[in-house]
Design a protein around this nucleic acid. Structure first.
Lengths: 151, 151
DNA sequence: CATTTTTCGAAACATTATAACAGTTGTGCG
DNA sequence: CGCACAACTGTTATAATGTTTCGAAAAATG
């Protein structure tokens, strides 16, 4: 995420938190910034390592901030990687799908209503009530596929 | 999984391993049995706890057996739960979806070609090459939804 | 400004997973 | 058969991820 996008994301978070009556503290802001700056998903302890902020930081510090950001939809957790990425459209709640490149490590967030709907109806056919769908696809991104062919 | 289904699963595994020229050792068989016997997904350390087989067992023992069973498609790993379940149709490779009940903990394995295909095409539209899709839905199963209404 | 709620700091601990290396067993082949 | 090799297993240690708990500080509330 480039500098401009980052600032926009932080602003959006600010506004949304104000609207929702929740506190966007310095700590949470800092964690969101670190997650967004990264090109790839970052682990909790990786964030922790970058949080030398005067006081020492312990795991709960990071996990608390991440929990908050997850609740607000500002970041997503990738279950297959035990890592976090900034959300590309935090304005509205949504069911996303993630394409994870095993080669370069980058992740693309899809938001296909077709996929979400298809899965929802398949689930509901069995009487199941979906709450939180987790859809992550491991594979190779366009760029890396291209590179592989050249070599 | 009831006793009959379990025996069938173990037999199937036997046959498939023979066909594939891989070894279905006592260790692996025991782990598969433990996973299949469980009503719900079981963690690696839970399996470990049930492996008092004369010699002591350490984590790598279980993880190695599980890796083998995963490769052969005899069990699945649920990324959101860090737990394993027996596969309900190991005969053919397949992309499954899992419906995980947050209430009773039971898991239903779907095998909807519609869902798999839909996701595959959504991914490929972006030039992405899917390898391993992970689809897990947290929610409430039919039974538990029903019970909740009664109370 | 006292009260209540929320957030944060700190230490310990719990859970899940892997690395590294040695020993053991099974398999194929001369 | 018996040797050589590969695959599997045992063992110890450690890494990586995530939680519990308790108490202090800071902020919102009335």
């Amino acid at each position: 995420m480039d500098e401009e996008t980052l600032q926009a994301a932080l602003n959006t978070a600010d506004v949304l938190c104000a609207q929702r009556g929740v506190r966007f503290t310095a700590q949470r802001r800092r964690v969101l910034e670190l997650v967004c700056r990264a090109e790839r998903p970052v682990g909790a302890y990786e964030i922790l390592g970058q949080l030398h902020t005067g006081a020492t930081a312990a795991p709960p510090t990071v996990y608390r901030a991440l929990d908050f950001l997850l609740e607000q939809g500002f970041v997503h957790k990738l279950e297959t990687l035990h890592a976090f990425i900034g959300c590309t459209h935090p304005e509205h709640p949504h069911a996303s799908q993630f394409l994870i490149c095993a080669d370069c490590g980058r992740v693309k967030e899809l938001e296909s209503e077709a996929v979400a709907g298809c899965l929802r109806s398949a689930a509901q056919e069995t009487g199941f009530h979906p709450k939180r769908p987790v859809i992550e696809v491991l594979g190779t991104c366009a760029q890396c596929t291209h590179k592989a062919k050249k070599v």
